[in-house]
Nucleic acid binder design. Structure first.
Lengths: 156, 156
DNA sequence: CATGAAAGCCATGGTAA
DNA sequence: TTACCATGGCTTTCATG
């Protein structure tokens, strides 16, 4: 059922709106994008069938839950064998403080974004968790001073 | 009304659940966290008042909307004056393909995550947009080969 | 063929006991 | 916590361009 779909201007408006606020009712959406409620409903269903929409999630304020500090951590692997890589990626997925992980081109193998409470917290994570992993040969950490922009909305 | 709030185990379960799926009804949430529907409702309201919850958003599949390629871009500024910084941050906020921006410690001033369709697309962005900005002295781009992990859920 | 208007059903949120 | 009620959104139908 994941067939491709031609996305027109109204679809784009719907996607943009729901990426900002998923609590909008079909009626509210309707007069925001200039279509009827029923039309919106049909379009959303089609977009869901096309697999364009993923989950609907509630975002939380990082500071309020003690995760206000972002650290970017470059990782160099001891081995590039497939099993080492998949073991590491599995490890990454098991650690909730690692919120993003990219396999990178260039001199480093992975880039992690780690959310922690403070420097002490990160030190513990780095020493006890990350550098304790057998696949990790080296890690270079860079602290973010502030998060200037962070959006889940992709341009359409 | 943004007063602090003591978060207990059930609150944590609620936050965790809603970070994964914000479409859960109070009833579904209730038996997932082991509380009554009414209790869930009260707790959510309190968490909202405490400012712990931010927006509810719909996530979209990057590949499906032609934003499957992630590029990390380090920026060095020409000036560190406040006005130059705020002008740059305003610029960042105006560009939808820049989805994340961190002010960084270390040798670079900013780290951007840019979502594009392909290399050509990024080239255009880099040459025409980013390097065209007066505040940007240098940029170093690193392409992600794949996104191994990406979650909006913060550990609580 | 997709859209817009209208209407009914149902689930949900919200409240009271 | 349980039960109830009423609001409002979801979903379908139908006529229209």
């Amino acid at each position: 059922m994941k067939q491709d779909r031609t996305i027109d201007a109204i679809d784009r408006k719907i996607i943009t709106a729901l990426q900002q606020d998923a609590t909008l009712s079909h009626a509210q959406l309707a007069d925001r994008v200039g279509a009827s409620s029923a039309s919106c409903w049909r379009r959303i269903k089609a977009l869901e069938n096309a697999g364009i929409f993923a989950a609907t999630v509630r975002l939380v304020d990082p500071d309020k839950v003690g995760r206000g500090v972002n650290v970017m951590c470059n990782i160099r692997m001891r081995s590039h064998a497939m099993e080492a890589r998949s073991a590491f990626e599995q490890f990454v997925n098991s650690r909730p403080e690692i919120v993003q992980c990219f396999s990178m081109s260039g001199e480093w193998d992975y880039l992690l974004r780690v959310v922690v409470a403070d420097v002490t917290d990160y030190n513990r994570f780095l020493m006890m968790v990350l550098l304790g992993h057998p696949s990790v040969a080296a890690a270079a950490s860079h602290f973010a001073l502030s998060m200037t922009k962070s959006t889940t909305a992709l341009p359409v």
